[in-house]
Design a protein around this nucleic acid. Structure first.
Lengths: 133, 133
DNA sequence: TTAGGATATTCGGATAACCGAATAACGTGA
DNA sequence: TCACGTTATTCGGTTATCCGAATATCCTAA
């Protein structure tokens, strides 16, 4: 069974993504490093505001910067994560619709599986479970 | 060049994910359909609150329910999206660190690429661009 | 039809997010 | 050093989110 994710941390990370301006910034940075003035002309937001959002993204460890003279060139410090996530929200999946019957069947199937997992008594093929690690 | 995503809509979608309780709910639903009382005993939250979060998830079209008597069995109506996203935030990527020199090189490379793309004068293989509908 | 279980909604107060304006901090070239 | 360009931070008002409490709605069995 998949280990439950750390919802607190994960939610904080996702919150950093959950703003149109921040998404736009990440999108721009996915195309290449940029400094704040670059972004000012690419986005419908002002300098201070962009800086504020960059602070949020920095805190979430999604971006970092390299100082180049008076400029700060921002870049994605977890590019895979950002690109994959942008890709995910971009694609659209057809909505699933389920009937009560399907749900019942699904629940029963799950219940049986849990049964089996919690009571592996009928051990043909000995006790030597290969521990997952 | 990748089309820019609809940041407004995408941010709204991501906002639905950005709460620990909602993430936990989605995680539970990823394991199988559940009704509210099921979740009450799985999560550290009360009925009304869970219902409120479910309303948010419903509005974001992440979950739907099938009525079964007095019960409402909730399920993921975009299971791929939810599972992939949960998978993404779970894995951790080493943080990239860049030097100003790398950044400069990166910017130059990008600039040259844009040059090439915007000035495709040297047209061997004629003008017949296949228009994308 | 009514009681009771399951779920949703409304309300209100607390907290957090957001953003513009002003200003601070920093780096560079003169 | 100084002025200026670039970016960050602080402040304050507005709006949004969150959650408990109370209550409403819906369903079913008796």
């Amino acid at each position: 069974m998949a280990a439950p994710i750390e919802t607190q941390a994960a939610a904080e990370l996702l919150k950093a993504f959950s703003h149109p301006t921040r998404l736009a910034i990440l999108q721009e940075l996915a195309a290449g490093p940029k400094c704040v003035t670059d972004m000012e002309e690419l986005l419908p937001a002002r300098q201070a505001n962009i800086s504020q959002h960059l602070a949020v993204l920095r805190y979430a460890r999604l971006v970092d910067y390299a100082q180049d003279g008076a400029l700060r060139c921002y870049y994605l410090c977890r590019p895979r994560l950002v690109q994959d996530l942008l890709g995910l929200v971009d694609r659209d999946e057809p909505l699933v619709k389920r009937t009560p019957e399907e749900i019942r069947a699904d629940k029963e199937r799950l219940a049986r599986a849990l049964e089996r997992a919690s009571r592996p008594k009928s051990g043909k093929r000995g006790r030597r479970a290969k521990v997952s690690r």
